[in-house]
Design a protein around this nucleic acid. Structure first.
Lengths: 220, 220
DNA sequence: AAAAATTTTTAGATTTACCTAAAAATTAAA
DNA sequence: TTTAATTTTTAGGTAAATCTAAAAATTTTT
């Protein structure tokens, strides 16, 4: 059994490992909003518990056990997010912080019943996949909107930024999950992207375009 | 803002204060499953924070602020219990431990939306009243079953013991909330109570009878 | 490949909530 | 009302997770 803090470390290492193979101390420190020295301490502890593999100065990787524990926390986080949005009418930009707390409630029974109550959802309100109780989930085949070319079409199925500011911005533009889009132009001047929606045309910066995930329905 | 542990102390002091006016160190230690010395430390801290009034060797009482904080935790605990039973189909004897954790989730928004989602329930699965968001709730007018006389009738509306063993026992006997009862006999030998239910007759020990709460519909 | 910059670790402290053992105060009993 | 029993507090310490400052290792730059 892991402590609240240990769980957070595992979760963050898991997310960082999605991008880079061996996760660095400084990166963890930044995510955990703590100091590198503290991270080193905790990493040693996690290594002693067999949750991470650790070689001094070489960063960490999750062991099988550690990865399973991390996936379990991610599963809880995402299920709670679905609960907050589907049942309690939270907006997708309001759920993150509360889910950060709820994900640490320790009860397998609770989370299995919640999963059932929610109808075994496959994705959370931001389009991220929800692992099943065995930790399995489909590797999602997303393309970043910014990688699309003029004329390409697709559907918004995820975001890679969960900040409230970003999500509110998308909401205001009408760029929410499930919305079909077509790239109508990419501005020469600043590379901003002109998008055709069902009923209107919107323009987004490259920075925004980086964090919108599209399930492509092929080139046009 | 209180820590997880401070919240538990406040809650326990609140519950103990329902029985005795000034709450003793040893009683708190027992409930908190800790040592009296630790309680003294924490009490000082709570006193510094203005949550309790404390005179050495004389026990503690909650201040207005402390009481409000405690009631807020009780409110959360009971709402989560309703959620677990009504929405996730937990049994009334299975909810206590999980609710102990959930009660510490810090989000006013969450709890107000949960309250609404549940239809603003007035009592939890054990019949305990749920404070509204202003901390107000009806002082319940329960009578202990053991205080009833032969021929008295009433309805089971609460329990004063939340252990799984006790609740399972009641369940098996058919003594659940809302069940109308009539005292048909009180055994001379051991004082055990013979109860007439709609469809059957059951016998319970005095110890069990102490912890069943009845809303009386008057003498017979 | 040496110097500079960056990253990571060590060493030594701090805070929170807890502990044991012993002292002090209160309450109950003789 | 003195003694005994109980309750509570104090004193000094521990473990978890953090910190700062300085040392060590690694990486990058020149």
């Amino acid at each position: 059994m892991q402590s609240y803090t240990e769980e957070n470390y595992l979760k963050i290492i898991y997310h960082l490992a999605e991008k880079t193979t061996n996760v660095q101390t400084n990166a963890i420190a930044e995510q955990m909003q703590t100091k590198p020295a503290s991270v080193t301490d905790m990493i040693k502890k996690l290594a002693d518990k067999g949750l991470v593999d650790y070689i001094k100065y070489q960063g960490v990787t999750l062991t099988e056990t550690g990865k399973n524990a991390a996936i379990d926390i991610v599963r809880k986080h995402r299920l709670w997010e679905v609960f907050l949005v589907d049942k309690l009418n939270f907006k997708w930009d309001e759920v993150h912080d509360v889910a950060e707390e709820l994900e640490h409630i320790k009860s397998t029974e609770l989370i299995e019943r919640l999963d059932e109550f929610l109808g075994f959802p496959k994705a959370d309100p931001h389009g991220d996949p929800i692992p099943d109780k065995n930790g399995r989930f489909a590797k999602t085949q997303f393309i970043k909107l910014i990688e699309l070319k003029v004329g390409d079409t697709g559907t918004i199925t995820g975001v890679s930024q969960h900040s409230s500011a970003f999500l509110k911005h998308l909401e205001k533009l009408g760029l929410t999950l499930g919305i079909p889009i077509k790239i109508s132009d990419i501005t020469d001047f600043d590379g901003s992207v002109e998008i055709q929606l069902a009923d209107k045309q919107v323009n987004i910066s490259r920075e925004v375009a980086k964090h919108i995930l599209i399930s492509s329905n092929g080139k046009n």
